[in-house]
């Protein structure tokens, strides 16, 4: 159903602006799904994934401009490089639990911003980095369309990987870490290796999304690439949609992503979007820390008054599917 939606959307989009918004929303969807590898499975909340995406973007851009590597080879190479860099970062960050992990993830954003702004001989500093287009001679709407499909493919790849992990022994171990790390460890789960592996996988997808963004947008600015705000949007999307569901982050990305675009059009860039983001994040954390999907499922179940199994990950995914179908039925 999601595949069909991705295939159909570009031909339904009335103008290139809507199509480019679609690309941005898909970018968010990939980022939120990639975040959910760490956040959903292990329960470690990272506010630094925005910076990892920025790192992927800059790595892609620098490989193209400085080393002269073809665009898409550079994209893959950049993802591999950033994933390799994630090993030492994860090694430092994942040795500690909870609080310190979040601190490290925020520190990562701040230090990268500092480095990329100051090291202007390589990164272009505050003037930004211009990345050449991968398809020269392509008109803008076609360019958007091509990247829409590229992002769609990446999203499906990420979702499939999440789905596979969710059903594997590895995923089981990760969820055990989320529920009780000490018990998981005493039962013989190699918790540190598991955490590190999934962090690297998550980073690789994040870097791919960031690299694609660099190729699509063509211009990188450290202030936007290494912003704590990007990371917090990702967390907001994933939490809003529900971190335990396959499609939760995608749903959150669609809702928040569209809202962000709408805000940009209506209000420009006033500081009020910070207030709105903060309020929304606060409300989600206070009242539905499990996300919209479980909340709605719970409500629906109470209304239906039917006894169902307590395994909610399965039913909720079904419900998400169904809701998506309903929505498409209503729009088309």
């Amino acid at each position: 159903m999601l595949i069909a939606a991705i295939l159909v959307f570009p031909s339904l989009a009335p103008n290139p602006y809507i199509l480019s918004s679609g690309v941005i929303v898909l970018n968010w969807a990939v980022l939120a799904t990639a975040w959910n590898f760490v956040g959903g499975f292990t329960g470690y909340i990272s506010l630094g994934h925005g910076a990892l995406a920025g790192l992927g973007g800059y790595a892609t851009g620098l490989l193209i401009t400085k080393a002269g590597i073809p665009s898409f080879v550079a994209l893959i190479l950049a993802a591999v490089l950033v994933a390799a860099l994630a090993v030492p970062i994860g090694f430092a960050a994942l040795r500690v639990r909870g609080a310190s992990f979040v601190i490290v993830s925020i520190a990562l954003v701040l230090i990268l911003l500092l480095v990329f702004q100051s090291w202007s001989s390589v990164t272009g500093g505050s003037r930004g980095l211009v990345v050449p287009r991968p398809f020269p001679g392509m008109l803008r709407p076609e360019h958007h369309r091509a990247f829409f499909f590229l992002y769609g493919g990446l999203l499906i790849l990420a979702l499939a990987t999440w789905w596979l992990l969710d059903r594997s022994r590895f995923g089981m171990g990760l969820k055990a870490i989320r529920e009780d790390e000490d018990k998981a460890e005493s039962l013989g789960t190699p918790t540190f290796a598991y955490k590190l592996t999934v962090f690297v996988v998550s980073t690789a997808f994040t870097a791919l999304a960031g690299g694609l963004y660099a190729l699509w947008f063509g211009d990188l600015d450290p202030v936007f690439q290494f912003s704590v705000l990007t990371g917090s949007y990702i967390v907001l999307m994933a939490l809003l949609g529900g971190v335990r569901n396959l499609f939760g982050p995608v749903l959150g990305a669609i809702v928040v992503g569209i809202a962000l675009e709408y805000f940009k059009v209506e209000f420009g860039s006033t500081p009020l979007h910070l207030v709105t983001t903060g309020l929304l994040l606060g409300l989600v954390v206070m009242f539905m820390p499990d996300g919209v999907i479980p909340s709605v499922t719970g409500l629906a179940q109470r209304l239906r008054k039917r006894e169902q199994s307590s395994i909610r990950e399965f039913t909720a995914a079904d419900l998400a599917e169904q809701r998506k179908r309903d929505r498409e039925g209503a729009t088309s």
Partner: peptide
């Protein structure tokens, strides 16, 4: 984890309001 997010949200609100 959740307290980090909620205080983060408060920080954003304060920054936004100060800017406004």
């Amino acid at each position: 984890m959740m307290s980090v997010l909620i205080t983060f949200a408060i920080a954003l609100i304060i920054e936004g309001l100060l800017g406004y």
